[in-house]
């Protein structure tokens, strides 16, 4: 094939263009740290990238949800713990007051403390997390118990509802984080109120002693509830660990998908540079020679 000078120049320029193009690509990869900038560079990888990004986002959100759930459960647990202490003290006082050697006046003194204990339990039941009452079911804006004082067994009225407060902890995983205030505190408050009333109104030691059963039941109840809440906290802890491990895994996958291996890119860049310089050198040598130089 006949080769002319302009053909050679054109070819050299084309090759230089190609090399520059490759250098440019590698440079972009190096400066951005990413293998691709636009969907057309790698359509499937872009779709995967978007997927991983969204999954990481969801993972983070679920971790936030879990933090909230754990706060709720912890507050519940601590309320139960305080409640247990109150009832244990009440039990002690009941045993003390049930003693036949106590006089009516003595018992009236104990009644004063019992009254405090009763009010303290009501306070505990009105526990809040931020702006929400945690024992009112879904009626988190309202105190669970209102004092109505309609006689024995009807001292307080439950104002909350029976609905569960659920939190989404992971894809398709929901957990109820609250306890029904009515179940947890109503009987116990009424029981304390009855003991107070018994002490204050001069009931006999035997009648006062009958209240011990209620105390025992309450303490057992609280122990069970605490173990239930503890179990839930255990579960949330597990889920958090899983989510954290998953996050690491997702970040790794995302990085493998889209990050440029800097060592590889730099090596290729050096190679391309060499090729470019070689083509520049050879092109310039060849371009310059022609018969014109040799004709006198």
């Amino acid at each position: 094939m006949r080769v002319t000078n302009s053909m050679m120049v054109r070819n050299m320029l084309d090759h230089l263009q190609n090399n520059l193009g490759d250098l440019n690509n590698l440079n972009e990869q190096l400066s951005s740290g990413k293998l691709f900038q636009m969907p057309s560079d790698a359509p499937i990888k872009v779709a995967d990238s978007m997927n991983y990004k969204a999954q990481l986002n969801r993972n983070n959100q679920f971790q936030r949800n879990l933090d909230q759930a754990e706060n709720w459960l912890n507050t519940t647990e601590s309320a139960l713990k305080s409640g247990t202490k109150v009832i244990q003290r009440a039990r002690e006082l009941t045993i003390y007051a049930a003693n036949d050697s106590m006089t009516s006046d003595d018992r009236k003194m104990v009644a004063k403390e019992m009254k405090q204990l009763r009010d303290e339990l009501i306070d505990i039941s009105n526990a809040k997390l931020g702006d929400s009452y945690i024992f009112s079911g879904q009626k988190t804006g309202e105190k669970p118990f209102e004092v109505v004082d309609n006689g024995i067994g009807d001292y307080v009225q439950y104002q909350g509802d029976k609905n569960g407060v659920k939190r989404r902890l992971n894809e398709n995983v929901e957990m109820q984080v609250n306890l029904d205030g009515d179940e947890v505190f109503k009987k116990e408050i009424e029981a304390l109120n009855k003991i107070y009333d018994d002490l204050d109104s001069g009931k006999s030691g035997e009648e006062i002693g009958d209240n011990l059963n209620a105390m025992d039941t309450a303490i057992n109840n609280y122990a069970e509830l605490r173990s239930e809440v503890g179990g839930k906290l255990q579960r949330t802890g597990n889920i958090i660990s899983r989510l954290e491990a998953n996050e690491v895994h997702l970040r790794d996958l995302k990085s493998k998908n889209e990050d440029a291996d800097l060592a590889e890119v730099i090596t290729e860049l050096k190679m391309e540079e060499t090729v470019y310089r070689a083509s520049l050198a050879s092109g310039s040598r060849i371009m310059q020679q022609s018969l014109v130089d040799f004709i006198r």
Partner: peptide, 8 residues
């Protein structure tokens, strides 16, 4: 260009 180009 091979056919019609000018070769100096």
């Amino acid at each position: 260009r091979s056919i019609s180009g000018v070769s100096l």
